[in-house]
């Protein structure tokens, strides 16, 4: 009975957290789907989103949600920059090259961040109220984060399926050689895709900052979650990533009701390996 109560209180929390996990993973999986690059700078980009929210709220004294659009824009431009500087020249090389290139970017961001911000924890002490749902307390920040996630997911979907550049992205993802033959400017499209991927990661980071304390090193934990979610939802499938995020969030809500929360990563990664073994295309279908 007590466990059930605990479950009912932590489940909504986990579910809402899952939206933001999904948003971050969407960025990772989009980049993989379009150009078969695993972006190892995904984590630090999430962290940069977190610190952006911190500075907007703590230093500028503004509502952290005012930061969402500027963070998105900066994330987009940063991604285009990373693609142009580090990824483009190895895009046709073996996977190891792009892994090392994005890992280098990862190290550069963490190094600069450590120098500027140290590795000590930061906190965005912001409240958007809360309300009771049965025994559970639902935090306003989590509701807003879920809404922002849905808005970005919807926006991404419309962009990919209804606009010309979005269709170019899908065409390049599907068959780059053919797209080039049609006259699709593939380099620009790849840079744009990478930018959108990092934009989603940065926005997710900006939202997570209102939930938990963080340091410059926090990103790697979320990066790993993004991998689990990406595989769960089917790598290369951004909409699947949202559902994968929700599943992971729900697990994080349920597990602590039964066993110590230190078991959460163990169970998550056992699930990760299990999915890879029995259904490597994920629950919602991967890009072939």
């Amino acid at each position: 009975m007590q466990q059930l109560n605990l479950l009912l209180t932590s489940l909504p929390d986990g579910l809402l957290l899952g939206f933001v996990y999904g948003l971050a993973a969407m960025g990772l999986t989009l980049i993989w789907g379009v150009m078969n690059v695993i972006n190892l700078s995904h984590g630090p980009i999430i962290t940069l989103g977190m610190f952006s929210t911190f500075f907007i709220y703590t230093r500028l004294g503004l509502n952290p949600y005012i930061g969402v659009l500027p963070i998105a824009l900066v994330g987009l431009l940063l991604g285009i920059l990373i693609y142009t500087a580090a990824v483009h020249r190895v895009i046709n090389g073996p996977h190891l090259s792009s892994l090392l290139a994005t890992f280098s970017v990862n190290m550069i961001i963490i190094g600069l961040g450590t120098a500027a911000l140290t590795t000590s924890p930061y906190n965005v002490d912001f409240s958007a109220g809360s309300f009771k749902l049965g025994n559970a307390t639902i935090l306003g920040t989590r509701i807003i984060a879920a809404i922002v996630t849905l808005a970005f997911t919807g926006g991404l979907y419309l962009f990919l399926y209804r606009t010309r550049p979005g269709k170019f992205i899908r065409a390049v993802a599907n068959n780059r050689a053919a797209a080039e033959l049609m006259g699709v400017p593939s380099t620009r499209i790849l840079a744009l895709s990478f930018g959108i991927g990092t934009m989603l990661a940065a926005v997710a980071g900006g939202l997570i900052a209102t939930f938990f304390p963080f340091s410059i090193l926090s990103g790697s934990g979320y990066e790993l979650k993004s991998f689990v979610i990406g595989v769960l939802g089917g790598l290369g499938n951004p909409i699947g990533a949202l559902f994968g995020g929700l599943i992971l969030g729900i697990l994080e809500g349920i597990i602590p009701a039964f066993i110590e929360s230190s078991w959460v990563p163990v169970i998550e990664f056992v699930l990760f390996i299990f999915i890879l073994l029995v259904r490597p295309s994920g629950l919602f279908g991967a890009k072939k």
């Binding site: 269709k167 899908r170 599907n174 797209a179 033959l181 699709v184």
Partner: peptide
């Protein structure tokens, strides 16, 4: 060399890129 994940109509749209 079609865009197999895209619809017939979208393939035709991509053809008209230039």
């Amino acid at each position: 060399q079609l865009f197999t994940d895209m619809t017939v109509h979208e393939n035709l749209e991509m053809g008209a890129t230039n």
